[in-house]
């Protein structure tokens, strides 16, 4: 049984078929309109006993796809019906391109002699690949719709609001995941600070087989910085665990921590040697470049989420034509 009310599930589903730029505004207005209608009918979306009446009202509004199509009147290559599938498809394609780009960039950065022009060329080809593939995926959906392979799921009144999908709460936490994260961060903190000699490669040394320490003195000089980051991360996760969900303040702390991590990682990767053996140093730096790339993408996503979230707009009220 779903504990979210039908109204919110309906509003969420309509939004899922709309482009991001108009989604929040339409959802906010739709919620206000539906609440007015419910009040006029003496219904409460949170009362289980009123679910039948709420479902009736939603049926009058029409299937989420149909309503979204009425709101989405601009010229479009991908219709609201196909929009969620298009978004998912392009996310997959964009992720693959990004990973390929990061691996390529990491490999190149690991070799000497890269200059700004070459780096610019790398970024340019990445942007070009993203744009070309966006066009290709959009065109593929346009063709599929034109050929009638993608059709509205259920038209007219013949749909059941009770079958609306549940809303995925992205701010809700998985406590087990958090605890595992805290455990591994503390483990790293202890090993790097109290037994750095355990980090190395297994091989022969003077007393027989064992671990040959690999961390260079240059790397160990950064240990206080790394330790500070790990302690902050454990503290942040503990706060999230206690709060039970991500709040906008905790998201700001997370973003600040990401920026600090990127700075420390970049400084480490720029140092002459982080491992005692040249080949291990090369592999470790390559891995660090990939981690750095992922950290940059993650920070970009965190910043976007912060700026587009409700943090700047506590009432969730968008701008109006009178204010424009």
């Amino acid at each position: 049984m779903n504990d979210q009310n039908l109204l919110e599930r309906y509003i969420h589903e309509v939004g899922a078929h709309l482009p991001r730029r108009s989604r929040q505004d339409v959802q906010l207005e739709l919620r206000s309109l539906l609440q007015d209608e419910l009040s006029a009918r003496g219904l409460d979306a949170d009362k289980a006993g009123d679910a039948g009446g709420v479902a009736e009202l939603l049926k009058e509004y029409g299937h989420p796809e149909e309503l979204a199509a009425r709101y989405h009147t601009e010229q479009q290559l991908v219709s609201p019906v196909a929009f969620p599938a298009f978004r998912l498809s392009y996310s997959i394609v964009a992720s693959v391109i990004t990973v390929v780009f990061l691996v390529g960039l990491g490999l190149r950065l690991n070799q000497p002699g890269i200059n700004l022009t070459e780096l610019g060329g790398f970024l340019g080809s990445y942007a070009q690949a993203m744009l070309l593939n966006f066009g290709a995926v959009a065109f593929a959906f346009y063709l599929m719709e034109g050929l009638g392979w993608i059709k509205p799921a259920k038209a007219g009144a013949d749909w059941d609001p009770h079958k609306l999908p549940a809303i995925k709460d992205t701010e809700r936490i998985n406590r087990t995941e958090l605890l595992v994260g805290i455990f591994f961060t503390i483990a790293a903190l202890l090993v790097f600070n109290f037994a750095p000699q355990w980090i190395g490669i297994v091989g022969w040394h003077d007393n027989g087989i064992g671990v040959v320490p690999m961390l260079s003195d240059q790397f160990l000089a950064y240990l206080p910085w790394l330790s500070a980051l790990w302690v902050s991360e454990v503290a942040l996760k503990a706060l999230v665990y206690r709060a039970g969900r991500w709040t906008s303040r905790l998201r700001v702390v997370e973003f600040a921590l990401s920026l600090a991590s990127i700075y420390v990682l970049y400084t480490i990767v720029q140092s002459p040697a982080i491992a005692k053996l040249a080949i291990v140093d090369g592999i470790a730096k390559f891995a660090l470049w990939i981690v750095l790339g992922i950290a940059l993408l993650e920070a970009g996503w965190q910043l976007y989420r912060l700026l587009s979230g409700k943090a700047n707009n506590p009432l969730g009220v968008p701008s109006t034509t009178e204010n424009k």
């Binding site: 309109l33 209608e37 009058e60 509004y61 309503l67 009425r70 709101y71």
Partner: peptide, 8 residues
Amino acid sequence: IPEGTLYP
């Protein structure tokens, strides 16, 4: 006018 028509 149906809601789904008027509001959009």
